[in-house]
Design a binder for these strands. Structure first.
Ligand SMILES: [Zn+2]
Ligand SMILES: [Zn+2]
Ligand SMILES: [Zn+2]
Ligand SMILES: [Zn+2]
Lengths: 163, 163
DNA sequence: AGTTGACATGATATGTTATAACAATATATC
DNA sequence: GATATATTGTTATAACATATCATGTCAACT
C-alpha cells in the first residue's frame, strides 16, 4: 500500500527513488498473489516506466530493454507492457499510444489521466464522479458501459507558471 | 440543424438515407460559412463515414475513395479526414484509431463516445456533466484542462439483447 | 487576358505503432 | 525425470500516420 500524502502526483516534487522502490515492492507481492510472476523483463519494464514518470511509447521501452540485454523485437516490449496493464501496474494512455506506470497500484481504480503538454508527465486523478456521470449519460441511451477511457490534455501546475 | 427525435442514436433503427442526406446538406452550408470548400474528396469522405455509421480506419476510408477514382495514397484520406474533424463534421475515436461522422453537426459539443463492441457502431452521448466532473477533479490537482477524451466501450441496446 | 497567391490534390518515401505465427527455453507439477 | 504450461525469442507483416515536393485549380487583382 502507498503512503504518499493524499493528492500526490508526478506534478509535485517528491522523493522519486522512494516512489519507485515502494511501487516495485508492492508489485512483487501483488503479482505473486495472483499466481503470476514478475519476471526480469517485466520487472525491468516496470522500472523503466517508473523512472520516466511520463508516458513512454512501446518502442522507447523496447530500446531500453534491448540496452539491458533483453530482446529487441516489438513483441518483447508489448508483452511485458500488456502484462503490467493486466496486473493493474501500468496504464495505457490511448491518446498518446503510450504507457505509464500506475501510481496507485493495489487500489481498485479507473482513473482519469491528466496529460501535461508542457512536461509530458501524466497524473492519475480520481474519476469516480466522472465515471458516474458517464454511466448516467450512457444508461439514458440504453448503453451498457464495460470499460471507459477518460483523458485530459492540458497544463500541470508547474508548466502553467513557467510557459 | 437536425430534427431527429431527441436521444436518437445510430443504435436505434432510423431512416438512414435521410440521416445521411440531412447531414450532408448541413455540411455544405456550414463549410461554406467558414470560407472553406467541401470538395469532392471531402464530400465523398463524409458520405463514406455516414454510410458506415461506425468508426472507420483511415485506410478503410482510403480503399473506398480509391474505388471511386480518388487517390489511393494515405495522405488523401488523412487530409480529408482531418478537414472534416477540423470542421466539426467528424470525430476521431482515440481508442480505435478511427473516425466517425458527427451526428450533431452545427451544435457546439464535446461528446462522450459510446462504442458498441457487438456491432461496432458509435454513438455520441451528451457529456457536459462528465466534463464538469473531470474539470473538478483536474482543478483539485492544479491541472488546467484544454482538451479531453471520453470514450466508453460496451454494449448497445440491440446487442445487449442478442449476444 | 495574364499574373499572382492561396488552397487543394497527387505521388513518393518513410516513420511509427501493433500483432500473428512459430520456435526455443524456462518453470511448475506429477 | 516426464509432461504440461508459461514465458521469451524471432521472423515477418499488418495497421496507422506524416514529411516533402510536385502539380493542378481557382479566385483576386492589374
Ligand atoms: Zn493507476
Ligand atoms: Zn507540466
Ligand atoms: Zn458530434
Ligand atoms: Zn451494438
Amino acid at each position: 500500500m502507498r503512503d504518499d500524502p493524499p493528492g500526490a502526483t508526478p506534478f509535485q516534487p517528491h522523493d522519486h527513488s522512494r516512489c519507485t522502490s515502494t511501487t516495485l515492492a508492492h508489485a512483487e507481492r501483488a503479482v505473486a498473489e495472483t499466481g503470476a510472476r514478475l519476471t526480469p523483463v517485466r520487472r525491468r519494464t516496470l522500472e523503466i516506466l517508473l523512472e520516466a514518470h511520463r508516458a513512454l511509447g512501446a518502442y522507447e521501452v523496447l530500446d531500453r530493454l534491448a540496452q539491458d540485454g533483453f530482446g529487441n523485437k516489438p513483441p518483447v516490449a508489448y508483452r511485458a507492457l500488456d502484462f503490467l496493464v493486466d496486473q493493474g501496474l501500468a496504464h495505457r494512455i490511448s491518446r498518446l499510444n503510450a504507457f505509464t506506470a500506475c501510481m496507485h497500484p493495489g487500489v481498485a481504480h479507473a482513473p482519469a489521466f491528466l496529460i501535461c503538454r508542457g512536461c509530458n508527465r501524466v497524473a492519475e486523478a480520481p474519476a469516480d464522479p466522472v465515471r458516474t456521470a458517464l454511466e448516467t449519460a450512457a444508461t439514458a441511451l440504453g448503453f451498457t458501459v464495460e470499460r471507459s477511457t477518460v483523458e485530459a490534455l492540458g497544463l500541470c501546475p508547474a508548466c502553467h507558471e513557467a510557459p
